[in-house]
């Protein structure tokens, strides 16, 4: 371990401040599992209050809309989600805790967004929803909501191992003009400030999330893209295998944390 004493940082415009200790001195209940801390524990009490009340949480607007879409027939097959899956409260319970999973022909990992679109194109014969559309974000959040409070529980062994390893490699790989890896912020420095931002463990259990900054709901892959842009790296496309593998790896890091979708974050 190296210790650095850097005065020029402040002049340079960035300071990694000391810990806010927010994450340490409170009983976080379900939001803390072992040393895993949900992003919830890094939020201010005002932001947490918005998440705590389902009515006050603006993400619920998108969830409401998705609840309606669940039973609306679309596509040439004349089906809705409900035609195959009946009531989401039963059929989707616990499903999101296991995603991403290997796809049908075992050639790639698919996350919830991709599974929804796979159902739309293959079963409903309907058009895929666009990434970050109100429809896809809403349905993803609605599906994940059915697992709310249940622990994240992804499979990383057997045929999934190579994808897990790829995701892990991505996490530790330096990239971009700033030559930084995910781990530099989220493993080495959570609880410290990068300028005015409190760095978190980068847990994925609350996505899609309503971000105050975005002023709307957004996906985990949008967050990845934002992180990548911040370190001046070329972001990957929404749903790119690199990001789905990373999603798998992040979920495995957050194994045991409860699904919090739709969370509210800064």
């Amino acid at each position: 371990m190296r210790k650095l004493y850097i005065a020029s940082l402040l002049i340079g415009g960035m300071a990694l401040g000391s810990t806010a200790s927010q994450a340490e001195d409170k009983d976080w209940g379900a939001y803390k599992v072992g040393d895993k801390l949900s992003g919830y524990t890094y939020a201010t009490k005002e932001t947490r209050a918005i998440q705590d009340d389902d009515f006050e949480n603006p993400a619920q607007i998108w969830v409401d809309q998705a609840e309606g879409n669940w039973s609306s027939v679309e596509g040439e097959a004349g089906k809705s989600c409900e035609s195959c899956h009946n009531a989401a409260s039963d059929s989707m319970k616990g499903v999101a805790t296991r995603y991403p999973v290997l796809n049908k022909n075992k050639a790639a990992m698919v996350n919830v967004e991709q599974q929804i679109n796979f159902c739309r194109t293959s079963q409903m014969k309907a058009k895929a929803w666009k990434w970050e559309s109100a429809e896809l974000l809403g349905m993803t959040a609605f599906v994940k909501l059915q697992s709310r409070g249940m622990p994240v529980n992804v499979k990383i062994d057997g045929p999934v191992t190579p994808y897990y390893e790829k995701g892990k490699a991505f996490y530790y790989e330096r990239r971009g003009q700033l030559d930084m890896a995910c781990k530099h912020c989220h493993e080495d420095n959570p609880g410290k400030y990068a300028r005015a931002n409190l760095l978190s463990q980068g847990q994925s259990n609350g996505f899609p999330t309503y971000r105050l900054k975005w002023q709307k709901i957004g996906s985990l892959h949008r967050r990845f893209r934002g992180c990548n842009k911040n370190i001046r790296a070329q972001p990957f496309a929404y749903g790119a295998p690199e990001y789905v593998n990373l999603e798998l790896y992040l979920n495995s890091r957050g194994q045991g944390l409860p699904v919090e979708t739709p969370s509210v974050r800064n």
Partner: peptide
């Protein structure tokens, strides 16, 4: 989102 949706709790 294109469609404006309102929620009310009373």
């Amino acid at each position: 989102m294109a469609k404006v949706k309102a929620r009310v709790k009373s």
